[in-house]
Design a protein around this nucleic acid. Structure first.
Length: 228
DNA sequence: TCATTAAATTGTT
DNA sequence: AACAATTTAATGA
């Protein structure tokens, strides 16, 4: 991994020279193909991962035999998103599957380096704390989304979650996601997603683009389906 | 760089 | 689910 690439990762800006040097030597970057699992339920934690490019999904669908409980997609992880700190902190085995929805570039630092940073960098601690707090808000929002019946609103809120600038600073204005992929995440058919996207576009909240969605009004997207 | 072709994605039935 | 139309990516001159 090169120093320039490192600079594109948000939390590295909070580190001092020594810390950055260690991270640079420790960081591994891999290319994952669609469908490939970045980490599997039950596997021991070795890395703290982040998405450089592409799109991942976090789910509990047990690929193995005897599916215990129905498969649920918890969330998508777009560029700029870092995850797994909860399990790294507790040194527990992974509790979810992380699977690539499309060809993606994933970076990771070892659990050892993660703990080393946690022990010495206040900036890094602040980042992790903010990350945990922000994600808690996302999961609460996700519960709300699950109870929405209007597909347009579900798509709107799910999109809003993916456009979260704190958790996913790599996304920016344009989220690279196909309508098929969005369908997988939200749990709707591609046709219905297509319809919903155009309804949102009609409200001037987003713009539908080839292979992606551009946000025009993030606040309106978050509020969609609710009054005021 | 441009033209041609294949692949991916979208829009519609 | 199937199809046609459109956009992007890949290829080779």
């Amino acid at each position: 991994m090169a120093a320039e690439e490192l600079a594109t990762i948000p939390w590295t800006g909070r580190l001092d020279a020594l810390e950055r040097e260690r991270v640079l030597g420790d960081m591994r970057v891999v290319l994952v193909e669609p469908g490939e699992l970045v980490c599997r339920v039950g596997r021991p934690v070795t890395y703290w991962f982040g998405v450089i490019d592409g799109l991942l999904k976090m789910s509990n669908d047990t690929a193995g035999p005897a599916g215990l409980g129905m498969p649920i997609t918890f969330t998508g992880v777009p560029p700029g998103g870092w995850f797994g700190e909860g399990t790294v902190l507790k040194r527990e085995p992974y509790r979810y599957n992380i699977q690539a929805l499309r060809k993606s570039v994933v970076a990771g630092i070892t659990a050892e380096t993660f703990h080393w940073l946690l022990d010495r960098s206040i900036g890094f601690n602040r980042f992790v704390m903010m990350q945990l707090n922000e994600r808690l808000g996302q999961f609460i929002a996700a519960r709300e989304i699950d109870r929405l019946t209007d597909p347009d609103a579900r798509v709107a809120r799910s999109l809003a979650a993916l456009f979260n600038p704190v958790l996913y600073p790599g996304v920016g204005e344009l989220l690279r996601i196909t309508q098929q992929e969005l369908g997988y995440l939200v749990g709707l058919s591609r046709q219905r997603v297509n319809e919903a996207l155009h309804a949102l576009q009609g409200s001037a909240v987003i713009r539908v683009e080839y292979g992606g969605v551009r946000v025009l009004d993030l606040e309106a997207l978050r509020r969609y389906g609710r009054g005021a």
